[in-house]
């Protein structure tokens, strides 16, 4: 599975720096101190991890950061949070009712997203939002378990389940 891809030097340096600084910031948040011993241990460990694993990071294929993408990403996080809270109230109200009002089904939806990372984010968002759960991904089709089936045609189900997220993800990843 592991192939030694030949990335250009510029890509390698860029990926290495992104990974190094995100790991180092994570370390600072975790220790939450600026004591010099902790500081230097953090730099050494981040350096070792970044230099050994930056190829995996490059293969994920993050798009270059622009202000527009960043803004839409923040907006996406807020929309996702709102949907998560709605999902929880919905599922919780189903659980506590004695009659257990569920109407489950398994449907297929299609996505127009191309990159793997975008598909991962879409699948995870679908898992976290009202009554839907990603079972499997196959090229551009997703198999969804739906706790309250309202549509069975592929286009209609796609619009109800994935439409909210897909339009933002397409802006972020293109």
């Amino acid at each position: 599975m592991y192939k030694n891809n030949n990335y250009s030097g510029k890509d390698r340096i860029k990926g290495f720096l992104w990974l190094f600084f995100s790991l180092f910031i994570l370390w600072l948040l975790l220790t939450s101190t600026f004591y010099y011993q902790e500081f230097w241990v953090g730099i050494v460990i981040s350096f070792i991890i970044a230099i050994t694993t930056h190829e995996f990071y490059i293969r994920l294929g993050f798009p270059p950061v622009t202000p527009k993408r960043f803004g839409f990403f923040i907006l996406y996080i807020f929309i996702l949070f709102w949907e998560i809270i709605r999902a929880n109230l919905d599922v919780a109200s189903r659980i506590i009712r004695p009659s257990l009002p569920i109407n489950p089904g398994v449907v297929i939806i299609k996505t127009r997203l191309k990159s793997d990372l975008a598909k991962i984010i879409l699948a995870n968002s679908i898992t976290l939002t009202p009554g839907t759960f990603t079972l499997d991904i196959q090229e551009d089709r997703l198999l969804i378990h739906w706790i309250d089936v309202r549509a069975t045609a592929i286009e209609e189900a796609t619009e109800i389940i994935g439409g909210r997220f897909e339009k933002y993800l397409r802006i972020i990843f293109q």
């Binding site: 929880n88 489950p104 759960f133």
Partner: peptide, 20 residues
């Protein structure tokens, strides 16, 4: 505990415990 099959259990287990 209450849901009838494994997929519905996953629905409840994922969503509620993530936010919780």
């Amino acid at each position: 505990y209450r849901m009838p099959d494994v997929y519905n259990r996953l629905q409840a287990g994922t969503k509620c415990t993530t936010l919780g």
